[in-house]
C-alpha cells in the first residue's frame, strides 16, 4: 500500500476544498462530455471554444463588481451565444459571425482584465479566470452548479430526437415538422451552460477541453450514441478525478508549495488517454463480405 500513499497525498479526502472540487468537477465532467458529443457531431467545436473565451469577459466583469465568477461566465456566454444566433440568422455565415462576436467580447475582456490589475495588485484573479480555480470555489456554489448541470442535461434529453434528426438531415427534420431553429437555440443554451460551468473549473481558455476531448475519444470507439455518451462521461470523470488528485499532490511540489493548476493535470490526463485510445483499434465491421 506504500505506492498508494504516494499517489494520494495525506488529507485528500478530509479536505473540504477537495470534496467541493470533486463534487463540482464530477458534475462539470458529465455535463461537458454529454453535450460535447453533440457539439462534435454538429461541427460546432469552434463555437464551443468561442463561448468559453467570451466567458472570460463576463467573469472579469464579475470580478470588477465583486460577484461570483460563474455568473459572469454565464452572462458572457449567453450574451455572445444570443448575438451569434441573431446575427447568423441574417448572414448565414456562422463561422464569421462567431469570429466577429468573439473579437468584440475579447476586446472588452482585455479592458476588464487591465482594470482588474489596476485595482488589485495580485495576478490571482486573472489566473483563475483564464486557467480555472476549482480549489478556490465557494462551497455555496455546489447547489447552483449541480442545478446548472441538471438543466443542461435535461435540455439535451428533451431535444434528443429532433436534435439528432436535424444534425443528420436538416431537410428531413423540417419535413417532419421539427422547429429546427428552436431546437438549435435550445442546444446553444445547453452548450453555453456546459461550457461556462467548465470554465469555472478549467478556466476560460481550457473550458472546451472537457467538452471535446472525452467526446472525441468516445465517438471513435462506439457505434451507438447512448454508449458514446456513457463512455465520454466515464472518461471525463476519470480525467477530472485524476487531475484533481494530482493537483492536490502538487501542493507539496516546487516551486512554492501553492499547487499547480488543476486544468494542467486534467488536460494532461486527457491527452494521454486520447493518445492511448488512438493505439487501440476501432471496432471492426461485423459485415460479411
Amino acid at each position: 500500500m506504500h505506492w498508494f500513499q504516494h499517489l494520494i497525498a495525506p488529507g485528500f479526502f478530509q479536505s473540504t476544498e477537495v470534496q467541493v472540487a470533486l463534487i463540482i468537477g464530477s458534475a462539470v465532467a458529465i455535463t461537458s462530455a454529454v453535450v460535447g458529443v453533440f457539439v462534435i457531431l454538429r461541427g460546432q467545436a469552434f463555437l464551443g471554444h468561442a463561448l468559453g473565451d467570451v466567458g472570460s469577459t463576463g467573469a472579469a466583469g464579475a470580478a470588477l463588481v465583486g460577484i461570483q465568477a460563474i455568473w459572469g461566465f454565464l452572462t458572457g456566454g449567453l450574451v455572445a451565444g444570443t448575438a451569434v444566433d441573431i446575427l447568423s440568422r441574417r448572414s448565414r455565415e456562422r463561422e464569421v459571425t462567431t469570429g466577429v462576436v468573439l473579437s468584440a467580447m475579447l476586446g472588452l475582456s482585455a479592458l476588464f482584465i487591465y482594470l482588474i490589475t489596476q485595482v488589485s495588485s495580485t495576478t490571482g484573479v486573472t489566473q483563475e479566470i483564464l486557467f480555472g480555480s476549482i480549489f478556490a470555489v465557494n462551497r455555496h456554489l455546489v447547489v447552483p452548479m449541480m442545478g446548472l448541470s441538471c438543466v443542461a442535461l435535461f435540455l439535451i434529453a428533451f431535444i434528443y430526437r429532433p436534435l439528432l434528426l436535424s444534425t443528420i438531415s436538416l431537410e428531413t427534420a423540417q419535413s417532419r415538422g421539427v422547429r429546427v431553429r428552436l431546437v438549435s437555440l435550445i442546444f446553444l443554451f445547453a452548450m453555453t451552460m456546459a461550457v461556462e460551468q467548465s470554465a469555472l473549473v478549467m478556466g476560460a481558455l481550457l473550458s472546451t477541453a472537457l467538452l471535446i476531448g472525452p467526446a472525441a475519444t468516445a465517438i471513435r470507439h462506439t457505434r451507438r450514441l447512448g454508449y458514446t455518451m456513457l463512455m465520454a462521461a466515464g472518461l471525463a470523470l476519470l480525467d477530472t478525478w485524476l487531475g484533481i488528485m494530482l493537483a492536490y499532490n502538487s501542493f507539496y511540489w516546487p516551486p512554492t508549495g501553492r499547487g499547480w493548476p488543476v486544468s494542467f493535470f486534467i488536460v494532461t490526463v486527457m491527452v494521454l488517454s486520447y493518445i492511448l485510445s488512438q493505439l487501440i483499434p476501432q471496432p471492426q465491421s461485423k459485415r460479411a463480405q
Partner: peptide
C-alpha cells in the same frame, strides 16, 4: 420525404437501424 443524402462521418456513432428508427418519431421531444 427522402432527401438527396445525409451528413455522416465514418465515425458517426449511429447504426443504420437507428437512423431508420428516427423515421418513426424523430420529431418528438425526448
Amino acid at each position: 420525404y427522402v432527401p438527396q443524402s445525409f451528413v455522416a462521418d465514418p465515425d458517426m456513432p449511429l447504426r443504420a437501424r437507428d437512423l431508420v428508427g428516427l423515421g418513426l418519431d424523430g420529431e418528438r421531444w425526448g
